[in-house]
Design a protein around this nucleic acid. Structure first.
Lengths: 181, 181
DNA sequence: CCACACTGCTTGCAATTGCAAACACACTGG
DNA sequence: CCAGTGTGTTTGCAATTGCAAGCAGTGTGG
């Protein structure tokens, strides 16, 4: 386990707890662990087992996997397939339901591209506001050429890569110390 | 962690090892754990941490997740969880849209569990149209029995919440023994 | 036969985990 | 003011984890 990650599991837990607006003791009780131990975990003094992480996750109403990832026990699963692929492969929904989900998902995607959603709307609007005023100002051909290379600036998706955590480097750390049976 | 799972992680490891045709010492060396400890794990005398499981998985050239599943640390991921995972990981939709999709998907799942999907309804109607004319023609009871066994075809897949471990009892179990010190 | 190599297991121990009891501090109501 | 309640932290300890040294058994070659 990478040492920095160990530190962050405690920070992560404290962060989740404060976001949930519950006290350390309340979470400890909800999770079924002792409050001193939870305190130590949050401060990075102890490294909890997967079981304890499981309990804490339950107390926080978050997935145990999220904590495992933070603790470096598992890799964060990148979606091997995207939403559409997953929906298509799903065996627990009918074809009709599948199509409905796909349609909804794609309409959401369109919403996001047209720039009317909640969270992404701000970013998209900002991107638009910049190129438009420049077009009004630049009535000359050379000026027209100047803004052209800037168009691809509006094309990309700024949030696409924001959520790729780097957790996989876990194992090689301990190996050399524990060898020789 | 469910106790039966603890027992089987050792069996599972031994099984994988024997299938790989390597000795306990070889695996221990490859995994970077002590061979006595690996022996104890295989015989269920010790419960290895997730880290050790990770190392053993590496030595066995299998995924750590497979061992985590056997050890009861995580759920066995069914294909349908890919949809939820994909939705959660998708960066092209907002949190709000994400929740909407999840809600819809899960309501579809519930529909399917109650056994009233559209696709099945069509099948049922087809099945009806066929036996009805036959009733007029045949009028015999065995035709009525023919479509009935097709219902179990909509077999369910329970998995999601089996993750709730009996772990909190473990703490309560240890607590009275630990105190009085 | 014996020495050697390999196998899996036993045993004692240091380090770590998780807990309970207690502590220190902050806040509130009488 | 003080007592009560809640917060998070400190401390000592029992249980557990993981290891190294060693043991017992098996197979092979000289």
């Amino acid at each position: 386990m990478a040492l920095p990650k160990v530190g962050s599991i405690g920070e992560y837990i404290r962060e989740q707890r404060t976001q949930a607006k519950i006290s350390l003791r309340q979470l400890a009780a909800a999770a079924g662990v002792s409050n001193p131990y939870l305190s130590q975990i949050e401060r990075g003094l102890r490294k909890p087992s997967a079981e304890i992480l499981n309990q804490i996750a339950k107390g926080l109403h978050i997935s145990a996997q999220a904590l495992y990832v933070q603790a470096g026990l598992i890799e964060d699963r990148e979606p091997d397939s995207d939403v559409l692929t997953a929906i298509r492969a799903d065996t627990l929904i009918t074809e009709r339901q599948r199509q409905v989900l796909i349609d909804i998902y794609e309409s959401f995607r369109k919403e996001n591209r047209s720039g009317t959603p909640d969270a992404d709307a701000q970013t998209t609007e900002n991107a638009r506001s910049e190129p438009e005023p420049r077009r009004h100002d630049a009535g000359s051909p050379p000026d027209d050429e100047a803004p052209l290379p800037e168009e691809p600036f509006a094309a990309p998706k700024p949030f696409t890569e924001a959520q790729a955590p780097s957790t996989p480097k876990v194992n090689g750390h301990v190996t050399p110390e524990t060898k020789e049976g």
